[in-house]
Write a protein that binds this DNA or RNA. Sequence first.
DNA 1: CTGAAAGCGCTTACAG
DNA 2: CTGAAAGCGCTTACAG
Lengths: 350, 350
Amino acid sequence: MVDPGGAGPVVAGRRPTMKDVALLAGVSLSTVSRVVNGENARPDLIARVQHAVGMLGYRRDLTASTLRRADRVSASIGLVVADVGNPFFAAVQRGVEEVARERGVLGFTGSSDEDPDRERELAQALAGRRVDGLIIVPTGHDQSYLLPDRQAGIAVTFVDRPPRHLDADVALSDNAGGTATAVRHLLAHGHTRIAFLGDRERLFTTAERLRGYRETLLTAGLGVDPALIRIGLESSAAAEAATRVLLGGPAPPTALVAGQNLLTVGAVQALRAADRQHEVALVGFDDVPLAAAVDPGISVVAQRPVELGRRAAELLFARIDGDHGPSRTAVVPTDLVPRGSGELGAARFR
Amino acid sequence: MVDPGGAGPVVAGRRPTMKDVALLAGVSLSTVSRVVNGENARPDLIARVQHAVGMLGYRRDLTASTLRRADRVSASIGLVVADVGNPFFAAVQRGVEEVARERGVLGFTGSSDEDPDRERELAQALAGRRVDGLIIVPTGHDQSYLLPDRQAGIAVTFVDRPPRHLDADVALSDNAGGTATAVRHLLAHGHTRIAFLGDRERLFTTAERLRGYRETLLTAGLGVDPALIRIGLESSAAAEAATRVLLGGPAPPTALVAGQNLLTVGAVQALRAADRQHEVALVGFDDVPLAAAVDPGISVVAQRPVELGRRAAELLFARIDGDHGPSRTAVVPTDLVPRGSGELGAARFR
DNA sequence: CTGAAAGCGCTTACAG
DNA sequence: CTGAAAGCGCTTACAG
């Protein structure tokens, strides 16, 4: 309950400033600034300043510091994710922070909750606090609001979904390719009635995964049955309900592709509730914890969310370092992980 | 690819300032400030300022703004969690953001990765950026470094673990009570050899859960066998290995208490690998996704992480609103969720 | 090396 | 209501 560093501020309720430190140490403001910033100074002055800093509990005001600095570098970046509740974005955040940390840069994250207004609010709040760069999972349909910020020197990179009405770097998963792999895998096991569970239609990732699903079926010479496509699912519970409806329909699917980790969980729950988890095949997009512990194991097309975050951060730092080349898109591959649920054959339905 | 709001800054590479806006609009700096802040002004001047703002792509510099503001209110708070990779902390973050959002306050989150230096670095970076308050999951053994920040008017609250060497509000789970419930539940099913898997020993949550485990065994008149206590486990993989060792030992446990969500996953994997998941009982502390889909279902003592985050935020905002009363501790209850793995009897071992 | 002074982009009394 | 001026807490040429 004590402050080992000193007695606290001289004036209660007011934060001590460099001026207070200078006064106490008997040096000029300039000298305090230099010592605090680790520049060269006479050893005895350094000692006096450090003593005063400790006595007063002085902390540099970074808002004033970045305001005045010529280079305006804050050694911090901002990240706006779509939903902190989703482990996928937590892993993306981790990837971003890993790279930032290697460079001695701090990351601040906010969650838009898939609300375009909030995305903009957060991005501008971070930009207004003068982060050096911004990594955004765009949820709105227009990111041109960032143009002034970027022209003013704030680097902007996107992750998981590309920006719209703004030309910028982006790191994406191979959404269509990964979904195509999932569908081909199910086709190879004899399935022809394959349903698709998807998130909000307006999301780029939903559209891409749906495209991979459709194109693969068409390429295989199969039609696309609209009754087997359930999108607009925003939660596990929604996916569970949609799966229940599909299973109870007149011509139920023999296999499911769940377009997102939370939807996979919902689909598994519905299959188990109907005790058909050993009968109806399932491949999830994006991995889920405990997928191997369930019976049957849940086959997935795994994303590499940490790598996605890392790639986005690398793209961002290249810009911060002065790269002015044309926009780049980094595509991170997906990995098919067979665990049982995706290898259930369609034979039993014949 | 166009800026619908205007042509971008007059001077490329330099962010337009209020001065630029004032010049273009033909009004004073004061008027621009008032219009930008939504204060009253003559309608024609408002229009001219807004037009200039749009033309230039002007954005208020929040660092300058909070520097000058008398009240120094930034309408933002900072959150430092221990590990973004853990869904528990993602849920805490969500709870904090929910409350902040209700108040029109933005939250910025950083992850200490259980590194005390990084905790301090992040907390001070946020404090230095003049957030109105700070919510911290302390990972270091000393939080007195925050004293100067708090005396300077930044509210500080802790969550999940109490601070050390600093008297402050904190929101905690009922760690000892929850673990006691888990142990009593296993005792009621006839187990007497109950192992405990725990995270890093230095963490408050590990210590409390271990205390709940020990005291319950002693109260029941059973001894505490050190061979059944495995702590210092930092990952699922570590818990899996520890479980394997326990099962292969000379006097193996008939039941396990996993002290944390990631450890529960590891324990489940080890039990399944040994094909003993229907034999050795398991109760996890903190819920895990898909716990109900595994066979047997995973019984847990669930925490309420979102509520924990909400409570911490409520404590914080009470301080921001001027409450100067003594420090408070909010304890959030846990809930026993039986799903099968915790209800396996010990009979088969006799 | 050190210190006095200017100024970063804003807000806010103050006078009109 | 509006505008001119001071000043928030710093950094950084500049002169010594």
